[in-house]
Simulated scan of single mutants.
Amino acid sequence: MKQTAVVVAPGRGTYNREELGYFARHHPDKSRLMAQFDDFRRQAGQEPLSALDGAEQYAGATFTRGDNASGLIYACAYADFLSIDRTRFDILAVTGNSMGWYIALACAGALDAMDGLNVVNTMGTLMHRNMIGGQLIYPFVDENWVPIPGRRAEIETRIAEIDRRAGHVLGLSIDLGGMLVLAGNAEGLAAFEAEMPKVQSRYPMRLPGHAGFHTALQAPVAAAGQARLGPELFDTPDIALIDGRGAVWRPKSSDPARLRAYTLGHQVTEPYDFTAAIRVAARDLMPDVFIVLGPGTTLGGATAQSLLSCHWRGWRDKAGFQAAQQEHPRLLAMGRPDQRALVTAPPGGRTA
């Protein structure tokens, strides 16, 4: 009997040194798809994705750029989606984190494969060329993923205080499980870093190559994206989509024009609530499993923390989650070889 699943698409920052060669390793059967992606990039005057994935060494300055990272992550994640064994899994919905929303649109059929790359590549390139603001990340949970009493309110109070200062911009960018991703200008980010205590030896952590996503700072990028990406690209999804507000876009009843307006408007300039998207998926759809697409494994922790926040399957802390995973895995990250084997179709299965 099939298991029901919600698929989660990753955002920026998931293709790192360990992921170099991810597409070539996992998707040799999808060379035709990669060739189409490469042709698109060449026509845009950009380095082919296969050349990036096949580089001898990982160079952060190259791979964290929005115009490179976005397309590369899209190619890997979309190919992972095509590799899910549909004889074993009935996909109820697709969601994603931040840029992962664009990937989710393609997985759900609201964009075809090439239009999905067009949207991802266009928005990633616009973000990189404008490079307005930056991002950092800060937790409000402890190392066992349990919320620290009063910590979130403390963070939000400090954000508001800094944002009121002359010349300072700071706001919530992404609600990411047990973390808050903040976006702002140089002054706002620097003030937060100076005034908040360092926790877990690494936070607050700047996110290299990231602009001030999901804030009003990105209004020029949203306008440019709307001018370049026409309504003909968008269609009604074949699979339900859950967006960055927790709203559900259902097959046959979703308006492509409204979907485009959200994607290139609100989604760009307003906070993205990944936690709400996962909560809605868990409570409203109650899937057997969540499948997190690669590349990388970093989104698995944020997905698990989002599920803990609504006590899905009785999970309440990291230790309990890990014990449950050992007994009956319900969060399957395709970036992990052991969990990937539980998800993928056998050779000769569904490919591009």
Rank of each mutant, 00 (worst) to 15 (best):
K30W: 10
W249F: 11
G335S: 05
E232I: 06
F234D: 04
A333H: 02
R86Y: 07
T64S: 12
A323H: 09
F40G: 02
A304Q: 05
L299C: 03
A304P: 00
A35H: 11
G133R: 06
P197R: 09
R12A: 13
P237R: 06
A75H: 04
E270D: 12
A5Y: 00
I155R: 04
T14K: 01
T303P: 00
A277W: 05
I73L: 08
T269P: 01
H266D: 13
R129V: 03
Y74Q: 07
T62C: 03
D142M: 10
R260F: 11
H128I: 00
F192C: 10
R336S: 12
G133S: 09
T303S: 07
Q339I: 02
G167H: 09
L307E: 02
R158Y: 11
A183P: 00
F37H: 03
A282Y: 08
T4L: 07
T4D: 03
R330S: 13
K198T: 14
E156F: 14
I159P: 00
G167K: 07
P204W: 08
K30T: 08
G209V: 11
D85C: 07
S98L: 08
S201I: 06
Y203S: 04
G244F: 02
P256N: 10
G60I: 03
T351L: 06
P139E: 12
E47L: 15
K30Q: 15
L92D: 01
P251W: 10
G335L: 07
V7S: 02
T95Q: 09
Y22T: 11
C310Q: 11
G348Q: 07
G66S: 10
R260E: 11
L308I: 11
R350D: 09
R17T: 08
D115A: 14
F140R: 02
W312G: 00
F81M: 08
D273L: 10
D235S: 14
L136D: 01
D90L: 09
G348T: 06
G13L: 04
Q267Y: 06
Q218H: 04
G265L: 07
I148V: 15
A153F: 01
I291N: 03
V289E: 05
A106D: 06
P329C: 08
L72A: 03
Y262L: 08
L342E: 04
Y74G: 01
I132T: 13
I148Q: 14
K198P: 00
T269Y: 08
L52T: 01
A341I: 03
L33V: 05
Y15E: 01
G265W: 05
H210Y: 10
D273T: 02
A106Y: 07
Q46R: 15
